[in-house]
Design a binder for these strands. Structure first.
Lengths: 149, 149
DNA sequence: GTTTAATACTTGCATCTTGCAAGTGAAATC
DNA sequence: GATTTCACTTGCAAGATGCAAGTATTAAAC
């Protein structure tokens, strides 16, 4: 089999660059990490700090400070869990939802442009393949332990 | 079409986490960025500083300092281009090659484990798909301008 | 052929990010 | 009730980042 790593390296770097350029919405500049945090808060159900930090594979202390900034920017809300007062449940404010949605839209429109290079059959094949890959990665013990979302 | 972005987000994060854990070889600890630099130096032909910095989408000043560390660690060599003395050509030292190869091996063995979850047909489909994707991204104007390797 | 502009880097500085260690307070275990 | 564990938060020190301003070299303009 050919060198799998270089195949993936190229792909993920390109997607990473895409992601990097997708983070400014209006006057509001969001860092790459922050956009990932917004994304995860939006996609998980009543997530705690720890959950999102684990998902993203970032240290909880760094994460704590990132969230503090997002709270200051009025994009994220932190509510103590009524059942366990140690836990902070994260959610997006209206503004946070707007920003997250905006980034999502930008990313999707770029991706659609990329996919527009392909015919229908190719598109479907590629999408199915990524699903396969994601499932295989989720099952693999070697990698990605933190993330099981 | 379903939400493409979340599909890619999951995939690239998993691969990113994989990458993150692949960077220590023996006693030598390498940061993620440094491993990317080693990879690119190894894969491009007599690359200049600017070329690699562009490929990786990092600022040239940050890159300059990263390369300085790698030179100090005796993993990278910097040679002035005889034809244009402004340019520094980068190459790996023997030790740098060893480290880069080691990381490559780790990544590939993890990827093979992931692919071992699939049957032959799925494997081929997935690999072909990533090629398709990389080609489409290379053609797209929207993204990844810096990288054309 | 000298001046001007552009290129390929490098350094200064100020800011942000990172993660370990050490803390707080709350829940679970003993 | 004492100890341990858990979910976070802060102190610090180290590293990463990027703009501005520098050097040296090459290319372009006049």
């Amino acid at each position: 089999m050919e060198n799998l790593r270089s195949l993936f390296q190229v792909m993920t770097r390109r997607f990473g660059l895409l992601n990097k350029n997708c983070c400014s919405v209006g006057g509001c500049d969001i860092s790459l990490i922050q956009s990932h945090i917004l994304y995860e808060i939006d996609n998980q159900h009543n997530p705690s700090m720890q959950q999102i930090a684990d998902t993203l594979g970032t240290d909880i202390t760094t994460f704590s400070r990132q969230v503090q900034s997002l709270v200051k920017m009025n994009l994220v809300k932190k509510m103590p869990d009524p059942a366990d007062k140690r836990i902070s449940i994260l959610s997006l404010t209206a503004e946070g939802k707007y920003i997250a949605g905006s980034i999502d839209q930008q990313m999707n429109s770029f991706l659609h442009e990329v996919f527009s290079q392909m015919n229908e059959f190719e598109k479907e094949t590629v999408i199915r393949s990524i699903h396969l890959l994601n499932n295989a990665m989720a099952k693999s013990s070697a990698c990605c332990k933190p993330f099981q979302g």
